[in-house]
């Protein structure tokens, strides 16, 4: 009997016994390889933009896909961190690692305060509360003296990493960004596949049942909200150093919408989907930029097609074909 059970290839069982399943490890190695080759084939700044947005989308997906919480105000954490790290690097003269850390800490604090208030409401009300808070951050960014209003914070120095490695060249900065992205992704992967992640999935699937098993679900929801906001902040802070710019675009509500779009196109609730979604959206924005406002129309069409034909997103469909979670 036990032997029969052992031979069944339960995906969950395998994960529990052997850590990361082989196909996930292969994807991570593939990402690392692609990441190392990419700057030699593509414009490094473009790839860095993809990486920043991919991390942002992965952080958002942690909340939506695994926590079941739709935040419509994630630009607040992305953009808020961008402003703080840009200010820290430019005005306070922080080295890049501390500037990014300042942004991350700021978004963690912001996420804790907003999250604690937002999780008191469910569903669409939760989304509206998060949107309202993000709008407050937007108007603060527009009016506050240190944010530079319409101009944003420009010419942010990239500085020297740990005081030694100059990041002035796109090439050396690229590998720092790649390391941040992979580190962030690995952390998200671990969160999803931790005892905490298991409880999170249970709450996503059936919150009353999780409560009836004795889980104080609001604390878990707050914890994942803060983790998601913090990682979104990491993405935003890194973006500010890459583009040497923090602007109102980063905190605008359309940025919150974009990250929803990326996550849904790539595949919500899949580990790697948001990376694909971010790559698709950023590529379109870059290479179709000459078409101006039409980019938004094309994005809208893609979104409609995605919702109508493959609701699970690109990677979600792929996972169904392969019968393996991706």
């Amino acid at each position: 009997m036990t032997a029969a059970i052992e031979t069944q290839s339960g995906i969950a069982g395998q994960q529990a016994r052997a850590g990361m399943p082989a196909h996930h490890a292969a994807i991570f190695i593939g990402l690392l390889a692609a990441g190392l080759v990419a700057p030699f084939l593509l414009y490094p700044v473009f790839v860095m933009k993809v990486l920043c947005f991919a991390l942002f989308a992965c952080a958002f997906n942690l909340l939506l896909g695994y926590g079941g919480l739709l935040s419509f105000g994630h630009a607040a954490y992305f953009g808020g961190a961008a402003y703080v790290s840009a200010h820290a690097a430019k005005v306070w003269g922080f080295p890049p690692e501390l500037a990014i850390l300042s942004g991350v800490v700021a978004s963690a604090i912001l996420g804790t305060v907003f999250g604690a208030l937002a999780i008191r409401r469910q569903g669409i009300y939760f989304a509206m509360v998060t949107l309202a808070f993000a709008q407050m951050v937007f108007f603060f960014s527009l009016q506050a003296p240190f944010t530079g209003g319409e101009d944003g914070i420009q010419a942010v120095p990239r500085g020297n990493l740990f005081g030694v490695l100059s990041l002035r060249s796109d090439f050396s900065l690229y590998f720092v960004v790649l390391a941040i992205f992979l580190g962030g992704l690995l952390l998200i992967y671990r969160i999803i596949h931790s005892p905490f992640g298991q409880v999170l999935k249970a709450i996503r699937e059936n919150e009353p049942r999780a409560i009836s098993l004795g889980y104080r679900t609001n604390r878990y929801k707050l914890a994942v909200f803060v983790l998601s906001a913090t990682l979104a902040g990491l993405a935003g802070a890194t973006k500010a150093i890459v583009f040497q710019l923090a602007s109102l675009t980063d905190v605008h509500w359309s940025m919150s919408g974009e990250v929803v779009l990326m996550t849904l196109i790539g595949g919500m609730g899949t580990v790697f989907g948001p990376i694909v979604g971010a790559a698709v959206i950023v590529t379109m924005q870059n290479y179709l930029a000459t078409m101006g406002a039409w980019v938004t129309v094309i994005q809208g069409c893609i979104f409609v097609i995605c919702v109508l034909l493959f609701r699970e997103g690109v990677v979600g469909v792929l996972a169904r074909w392969l019968k393996k979670p991706l």
Binding site: G19, S194, P195, F196, Q198, L213, G214, L227
Partner: peptide
Amino acid sequence: IALQRQRGDSFDFWRSQK
């Protein structure tokens, strides 16, 4: 999920589900 309650709260997101 229910047995996991024996651990108390499971906020340890840094640990493997192993």
